[in-house]
């Protein structure tokens, strides 16, 4: 029998109350503004392996302020674990701002390149399929096509799923970038 305090602690941590229950793991998208140095990127990536946190994807690029970079990280965990991820990231001296955008209205986008073997005879059929995803052809050879597609991760997954029916030679995904939506017209 759990005491009321034990139940409280488990609920706070997002853990199951039943001994054989599984934790309520959730995917979180975290954006981080860091100093624009190699050491800073190293420290953020290192933190995940050091502390045993999951890291699904990372994308990095320059932010508006040239001395900073914006990282978008995708990580998985229960509430306690995600709380730790955020606090540990914040405690790094090179991080300026850490935000879990998961529960805010936000935009997530990913870019994906897919190279598919495709003889000339099948080109038109294949292009009509990728048109549905508003993918564009970015390279063509006598026996292959390379598509570029952008969108939310679910769309990218669906696109790659559709391409599985063909002879996929290579897939490259950028990892997610995310940003909170400014609700300018909300009253």
């Amino acid at each position: 029998m759990l005491t009321s305090q034990q139940i409280f602690r488990k609920q706070m941590a997002g853990e199951s109350l039943h001994p054989d229950g599984t934790d309520t793991l959730q995917r979180h998208v975290v954006t981080v503004l860091v100093e624009n140095t190699l050491g800073a990127l190293n420290r953020v990536a290192n933190l995940f392996s050091q502390r045993g946190f999951e890291l699904e994807s990372v994308s990095v690029g320059e932010a508006k302020d040239q001395t900073l970079r914006r990282m978008t990280l995708v990580t998985t965990g229960n509430d306690r674990m995600i709380g730790q991820v955020l606090r540990q990231l914040n405690s790094l001296i090179d991080t300026i701002e850490v935000e879990d955008v998961t529960h805010f209205d936000h935009i997530e986008r990913e870019l994906c390149l897919v190279q598919v073997r495709c003889p000339a005879s099948e080109r038109q059929v294949l292009i009509s399929v990728v048109d549905i995803f508003r993918a564009t052809v970015v390279n063509i050879t006598p026996d292959s096509l390379t598509f570029e597609v952008t969108g939310p991760p679910a769309k990218i997954n669906a696109f790659i799923g559709m391409m599985r029916g063909y002879d996929v030679l290579e897939v490259a995904r950028s990892g997610r970038v995310a940003m909170r939506r400014e609700l300018a017209f909300e009253h």
Binding site: F8, R9, M12, A13, G83, Q84, R87, Q88, N90, S91
Partner: peptide, 13 residues
């Protein structure tokens, strides 16, 4: 003093 220490192992009321 360390936010990462609070509720790391045992959630605090």
């Amino acid at each position: 003093i360390d936010p990462a220490c609070i509720s790391k192992n045992v959630p605090a009321n």
